[in-house]
């Protein structure tokens, strides 16, 4: 009972909030509704008993990704509406509608054909994080490590891009730098 009520509540709210994200002309509304929608999506994971994934959704999308978006928004005047510059609303409508229909078909087809089956069903007596860890570090070990490597590369790249002037101090002037050190360790 409660699960169903919660599911429909969450679906309506999520769909509504993402609609606001797409349709609103105000950056702030778009951003906060997107963040709220992300929170509500984690609610679905909790409903399905996937606590770990729900929390990961919360930490990664709400805590990190959306906050980075928000950081980007700082460069705009967030209180003002933006003028959108649509070249052809027909193309936009067709493309987005087509993609939406395609996604629905992709996800609905296996359910309609009753051919949905878990390739690696969760083992009994394991908690959420444990079963995820088991699958990640056995079956999907190579993709997992490759993803880790990619993230490492991205991190190093980001550091190099951001840190070109890292050895120049913003607070210490050149004269101060040239002062010879008293016995070397002050």
């Amino acid at each position: 009972m409660f699960e169903q009520i919660a599911f429909y509540l969450f679906s309506v709210l999520t769909a509504g909030l993402f609609l606001v994200t797409v349709l609103s002309r105000n950056v702030l509304y778009a951003m906060s509704s997107l963040a709220a929608g992300m929170v509500l999506i984690s609610g679905f994971f909790f409903l399905l008993g996937a606590d770990f994934l729900g929390v990961v959704q919360l930490v990664v999308y709400v805590g990190a990704v959306m906050a980075l978006y928000a950081f980007g928004m700082m460069f705009f005047d967030a209180t003002r509406d933006i003028k959108e510059n649509n070249t052809s609303s027909k193309v936009v409508f067709l493309l987005s509608g087509g993609i939406a229909v395609l996604l629905v078909v992709i996800f609905a087809a296996p359910i309609l054909g009753n051919s949905i089956e878990a390739t690696y069903p969760p083992q009994e007596g394991l908690t959420n994080p444990e079963s995820i860890g088991l699958v990640l570090f056995t079956k999907y070990l190579v993709p997992f490590e490759v993803a880790a490597l990619m993230l490492l590369v991205a991190m190093v790249g980001g550091m190099i891009l951001a840190g070109k002037k890292m050895d120049q101090s913003l607070t210490v002037t050149d004269e101060e730098m040239n002062i010879p050190q008293k016995d070397g360790d002050k």
């Binding site: 702030l28 929170v39 606590d51 930490v59 709400v62 805590g63 928000a70 700082m74 959420n128």
Partner: peptide, 28 residues
């Protein structure tokens, strides 16, 4: 009593950053 309580608390406190963030951006 969810079995990922620590992560949940941290995630929720992380989501708490939206309070000051939205407040700061909304007030012109």
């Amino acid at each position: 009593d969810i079995n990922v309580a620590i992560l949940f608390v941290l995630g929720m406190m992380g989501a708490g950053l939206y309070g000051p963030l939205l407040a700061g951006m909304a007030q012109a």
